[in-house]
Write a protein that binds this DNA or RNA. Structure first.
Length: 570
RNA sequence: GCGGCUGUAGUCUAGCGGUUAGGACUGAAGCUUCCCAAGCUUUAAGCCCGGGUUCGAAUCCCGGCAGCCGCACCA
């Protein structure tokens, strides 16, 4: 099918439309209409149920704006701030700072105008074809803003929700009673100033993520529920190979998947995908090949879905090692470590440099403290056998004679050890998932469109119609609608147009079933319940409607047909 | 950001320098209708934006914006 057909349906029926349309639109931004908002909400609610309710991860809500140091630490600032030039001849892009290497002291620190002037003066040409180059452009994929007035601090819209969880590791660890594994999740918006947003919901500038950051002991990356699911099979495309079905335990045993925890969250992702109605024949896990994996990631798998745009990444599940937490530990100075108690306290003896304060105090007076701190940080081997050591403090150089310190054995009793936790990160793109769900649910036969959404995610769980809007049928139908709504089940009442048209409207927006009040209802209190996918109807007592629709809405049944199993056809 | 193609009601579309921009579907109001987009009446809604050429522009030209395709980018 064409993506345009589906986007047209989405506009017509209120799932989504381009944002700021009356002002000409803005690429990379979409509004969710009433049905889209509901579908999105339902997808997120199910994810929350799996990750927060079932797995016990902690949900956080962090700010969308963060100050510069956060992204300095995470690497986003440098990774996103590169300057590029393009060749006017061959079209190839080059890092402008690399071309200016050697021509200027610090090419990364100057403005693009300055850099452009230098490249111009030195007549730098394309290294490939010797063609002329464009002026340097800065590709910063983060949206920048200013925090506060006057000499405001630079701030950025977060490009992922993840950093909010990394910087809060200590809180998460403490709230989780200082045990590993422990994890947090965050659902929310993220922003990337894409150079060229394309493909509808696939590449947006403002989008929605559902991310989990799960912290592990580096040597124990498994999950309590792993054993219960390890025999399940996933469609895996390892390292450029074709898709094969493989059980979790086989994949871990063969080192196809690097550890049990990663395998577990891949399985959870697969289950989520099927629950919300993605077509199992059109999804797969593709492993990142070495050259596309971020340098710090140990293993990374994408859940991909086949769409009109080709195979699209919906979820990335990565073992990020200790990279992120380590980075924030180093930049912030905060102690972002976990602590593991030894079974028996251990005595550790090691060599340390011990300053002799009595000697140093006489020699260095007020500088003694700073010098002693530097000494303590040094490795014993670096000073062993030397007569003196040169140390710089506050820009001044000092020569510290060996009489000022000694190397001693110090025995420390350790009841455990601190370590930087490793992180496994399942990162879900909500908008892409929602789009893939719509596409996989879409079918057209003889110009008749049906969205076969799962009851779990469908915006309306049931349509409620009077066959005729008179003779009291409409009042009964309105009462039924009321009782569904008051039970928290989204239903849609409609009495306009022919009954067929009303069914068609519901089929087109993915409503799994329709309840119709007819003349027989007035005699025996039964109504018809119509299955969207088969168009079949059963009769049931109007008193059974709420519970039956609830089953469909809760996804306890894979399809309306299941919920109607065992019921007599009219 | 580069190149190609495109832009007419909510959707699909007619228009090819000259009346009041036409139709279909959808929407709304009503009639009719005893289960799958039926019919009838009424009704709402449009030339992406800005310049230019011309007596006259939806139509031709330029710029912007947006969409599609390809390239590049996608931590």
């Amino acid at each position: 099918m064409e993506s345009q057909e589906l986007l047209s349906l989405c506009r017509r029926r209120g799932f989504l439309w381009p944002a700021y349309d009356i002002y000409g639109g803005l690429a990379g931004f979409y509004d969710y209409g009433p049905l889209g908002a509901s579908l999105k909400h339902n997808i997120e609610a199910h994810w929350r149920r799996l990750y927060v309710f079932d797995e016990g991860l902690q949900e956080l809500v962090c700010p969308l704006i963060a100050p510069e140091p956060v992204f300095k630490a995470s690497g986003h600032l440098d990774a996103f701030a590169d300057m590029y030039v393009e060749c006017k001849g061959c079209g190839e892009s080059h890092r402008a700072d690399h071309l200016a290497e050697g021509l200027v002291d610090n090419p990364e620190a100057i403005s693009e105008e300055e850099l452009g002037r230098i490249l111009d003066e030195k007549a730098v040409k394309c290294p490939l074809c010797k063609g002329d180059l464009t002026a340097p452009r800065r590709f910063n994929l983060m949206f920048k803003t200013a925090i506060g007035a006057g000499s405001a601090k630079p701030g950025y819209m977060r490009p992922e929700t993840a950093q909010g969880m990394f910087v809060n590791f200590s809180q998460i660890y403490r709230h989780g009673r200082e045990k590993l594994p422990v994890g947090a999740v965050q659902l929310g918006r993220a922003f990337r100033n894409e150079i060229s947003p394309r493909q509808g919901l696939v590449r947006l500038r403002e989008f929605h993520q559902m991310e989990a950051e799960i912290f592990f002991h580096p040597e124990r990356k498994t999950w309590p529920r792993y054993d219960g699911v390890k025999s399940h099979v996933l469609p895996l495309a390892p390292n450029g190979a074709a898709v094969t079905d493989m059980s979790l335990e086989d994949a871990v045993a063969s080192k196809t998947i690097i550890n049990e925890a990663l395998a577990y969250f891949m399985w959870l992702t697969y289950r989520f995908a099927l629950d919300i109605g993605l077509n199992p024949k059109r999804i797969r896990f593709r492993q990142h090949e070495r050259n596309e994996m971020a340098h710090y990631a140990a293993d990374c798998w994408d859940l991909e879905a086949e769409t009109a745009y080709g195979w699209v990444e919906l979820v990335g599940i990565a073992d990020r090692g200790c990279y992120d937490v380590q980075a924030h530990l180093r930049h912030s100075g905060a102690d972002l470590t976990a602590f593991e108690r030894f079974e028996q306290p251990r005595e550790i003896t090691r060599e340390v440099i011990s300053p002799r304060f009595d000697v140093m105090g006489k020699l260095f007076k007020g500088d003694t403290k700073a010098l002693a701190e530097k000494l303590i940080e040094m490795a014993p081997d670096a000073v062993r056998g030397k007569d003196e050591v040169a140390i710089e403090v506050n820009g001044d150089s000092f020569t510290v004679p060996s009489s000022c310190y000694e190397i001693i054995d110090r025995t420390e009793k350790a009841s455990g050890e601190k370590f930087v936790p490793h992180v496994i990160e399942p990162s879900y793109g909500v908008d892409r998932i929602l789009y893939a769900v719509l596409e996989h649910a879409y079918s057209m036969k003889d110009e008749y469109v049906t969205l076969s959404l799962e009851g779990l995610v469908a915006p309306f769980k049931a349509g409620v119609f009077p066959l005729m809007s008179r003779d009291g049928l409409d009042e009964v139908a309105q009462e039924l609608h009321e009782s569904l709504m008051s039970n928290g089940i989204a239903a849609h009442y409609d009495e306009s147009g022919s009954i067929g048209r009303r069914y068609a409207r519901m089929d087109e927006v993915g409503t799994p079933c329709c309840v119709t009040v007819d003349y027989r209802t007035m005699e025996d209190g039964t109504v018809t319940l119509r299955n969207r996918d088969t168009k079949e109807q059963v009769r049931l007592s109007r008193n059974e409607v709420v519970e039956t629709v609830r089953k469909i809405a809760e996804g306890t049944h894979r399809s309306p047909s299941d919920a109607l199993d065992g019921m007599k056809v009219v």
